[in-house]
Design a protein around this nucleic acid. Sequence first.
DNA 1: CTTGGAATGTCAACAAGGCTGACATAAACT
DNA 2: AGTTTATGTCAGCCTTGTTGACATTCCAAG
Lengths: 167, 167
Amino acid sequence: MPEGRTGQGYGGESLLFLTDEQLRQGIEAMFFAYRGFTADPDRILAELAYGRAHHRAIHFINRSPGTTVNNLLSILGVTKQSLNRVLRTLIGDGLVISKVGELDKRERHLFLTEQGQALEATLSDAQRARMRAAYKDAGPEAVQGFKTVLEAMMDADMRRAYAKLRD
Amino acid sequence: MPEGRTGQGYGGESLLFLTDEQLRQGIEAMFFAYRGFTADPDRILAELAYGRAHHRAIHFINRSPGTTVNNLLSILGVTKQSLNRVLRTLIGDGLVISKVGELDKRERHLFLTEQGQALEATLSDAQRARMRAAYKDAGPEAVQGFKTVLEAMMDADMRRAYAKLRD
DNA sequence: CTTGGAATGTCAACAAGGCTGACATAAACT
DNA sequence: AGTTTATGTCAGCCTTGTTGACATTCCAAG
């Protein structure tokens, strides 16, 4: 088989001969873009002595108020011990409240306080601003392609979690 | 101004009214996709007691053999001290060699050994396989859009580093 | 030519946030 | 009631980021 030319299929005029070089460019684009993706919230978080882990927790609690710790775990893909440390500080700082479940008292349901919502909005605004600028730059068809490829890149269980959030 | 509807411009039939909801979906897609993106190499690295940091170093040394530590730093966006720890173990394990610069003896030029190249290939193959599958799934126009949006998402200096690697 | 500052890389110590293990409590199932 | 299962918490370790201190080399000004 010819070197540096793997994969098959042909997509009309736009080639779908995927050379290793093309794939590597995609890999590097992903690497650099992710840095940009997190840069703005990271700056804000650093001033507050929080990290990316706090951001993720806040994001998904905002997204699904009342979600349980266990639920959050499966979305974030970390261990409960790891998440717990983050939640403890957020609760201690009054950004999140944890309510014992009424139906099942083992569960803790998580909510953002007003203060938590304020931080979420600040972080979200910064991240959305960059996203919006990128989308505008690239145009609508590019955005569609962007999402399609990202979704194809996920593992099955992540794709499920992602789809579930869209509902 | 109307709630949840920011940004402007209209892209023909494909809307470019970017609701906060649409942007949030993009953000979440990025989050989940990045996990998939790193999952395969991570599994391989874990068995070898290496981490993502080692992977990144190996990747870019392979990409630009003879690059200097300083050069690598600016690409990776970490401190030299952080990179140094990783390089030390890679050199100690015989995956990388560091040659004192002939012209400027302060510099160290980095190369992969055969063993280093072998690991790079293993990691690369795994990551490319997923990338290739995603590309095939999504189709050529989607791939173009994917790259366009990612590039628009980078900071200016990352975009420069990225472009430089394409050369 | 020498001397002081800039560039480059190394070593040490610390912090954030992953991880596993041990454990408490509540629910569920014989 | 007693065992098993689910959920959450506490303690301690490891990777990988950080800053600070320092050695070496280069270069330019005196």
